[in-house]
């Protein structure tokens, strides 16, 4: 069934769309009441965030825009040491979108929400003119498990851990856009339980960031600037799969600048680095985790290359487009 402008009218067809797709998939006692706002029980400090998702293509190897929309917001909450509890979602649907497609997207959101143990408690739908694309906003709220985790909080001597392979989401999206067949899957995943594992094991995490757009290079530069320190990383410690390496070589891309959707960096006291690594490796989203470097005096990001040379690593400027030569 194709969605047309009448599905955004607020009348019977809107109601059908909400019931047949969103209530069916997101099904929970708060949402099902269909009140004007969700009424929630919360106590203590909370974290609260929002993100919008406009990815093209909407479906890719390893996920779709729906899974991304849940994981993105769950991960942003988690990076502040919060346990995500509730999400809201807004769908902006272009005319011509297929209801089966929207159902698949909502189903992916249902699965991701179940995995992260959160509820989608409020939503909104709008239909606009266009070519069948779907855009999603999610907002999320979570309770703080550990206070003080902040990008401004890295200390000299701290170790930096990366939870797994770089570049997989970016490479999966680019492959789909370019019609290249390979086995590269997006790493899109909710990281809330990985974070909970670190906190439950008394790791004194100083700073956490999910490594999304702009890649590791950009995140580490943000860390260096905000914490007024220099980040030193070791090229040989950076986990990148052979397939992504090959993909990058062909297209002239650099895994340091590629987006991920299921990876984080955690900055922890050097004395806890090994323990933190072990905790990460025991979680299914951290099996390839590595200690990639440390916080030192100075500014910017420096990488010790495989050949033991020094490379200054700057933030991403513009879009990482394939080269022509």
């Amino acid at each position: 069934m194709k969605i047309d402008i009448s599905y955004g009218s607020g009348g019977k067809q809107t109601s059908n769309l909400i019931n047949d797709i969103f209530i069916k998939n997101f099904d929970n006692e708060v949402l099902n009441k269909l009140e004007d706002a969700a009424v929630l029980d919360m106590s203590g400090k909370i974290a609260f965030t929002t993100d919008s998702f406009v990815v093209t293509p909407m479906f890719f190897n390893g996920g779709n825009i729906g899974k991304l929309a849940v994981c993105g917001t769950v991960n942003d909450l988690s990076m502040m040491g919060a346990m995500p509890k509730y999400l809201t979602t807004g769908f902006i649907i272009e005319e011509g979108a297929d209801s089966e497609t929207i159902d698949k997207i909502a189903y992916a959101m249902k699965l991701a929400a179940a995995e992260a143990n959160i509820k989608i408690v409020a939503g909104d739908t709008k239909v606009i003119e266009g070519n069948g694309n779907v855009y999603i906003n999610t907002a999320g709220i979570g309770t703080i498990m550990k206070e003080g985790i902040s990008i401004h909080n890295c200390q000299k001597g701290d170790a930096i851990l990366l939870s797994g392979n770089l570049g997989e989401h970016h490479a999966a999206i680019m492959s789909k856009r370019m019609g290249i067949e390979n086995n590269i899957m997006s790493d899109c995943a909710p990281l809330s339980l990985l974070v909970k594992d670190l906190i439950d094991n008394d790791i004194d995490v100083h700073c956490m960031r999910d490594v999304t757009r702009g890649g590791l290079a950009t995140v580490l530069n943000e860390v260096a600037e905000s914490s007024v320190c220099r980040v030193e990383i070791i090229e040989d410690s950076l986990p990148v799969s052979d397939e992504v390496k090959g993909f990058c070589n062909i297209l002239g891309l650099d895994p340091l600048y590629m987006a991920n959707e299921g990876k984080l960096i955690a900055v922890v006291p050097q004395s806890q680095a090994k323990k933190a690594l072990e905790v990460m490796k025991n979680n299914k989203y951290g099996t390839n985790a590595q200690i990639i470097g440390s916080i030192v005096c100075g500014k910017g990001v420096n990488m010790i290359t495989t050949l033991k040379g020094n490379r200054i690593v700057d933030i991403l400027y513009g879009e990482g487009l394939p080269r022509i030569c």
Partner: peptide, 9 residues
């Protein structure tokens, strides 16, 4: 040359 830090070597 930059990626490998050749100048520093």
């Amino acid at each position: 040359i930059f990626k490998n830090g050749i100048r520093s070597l």
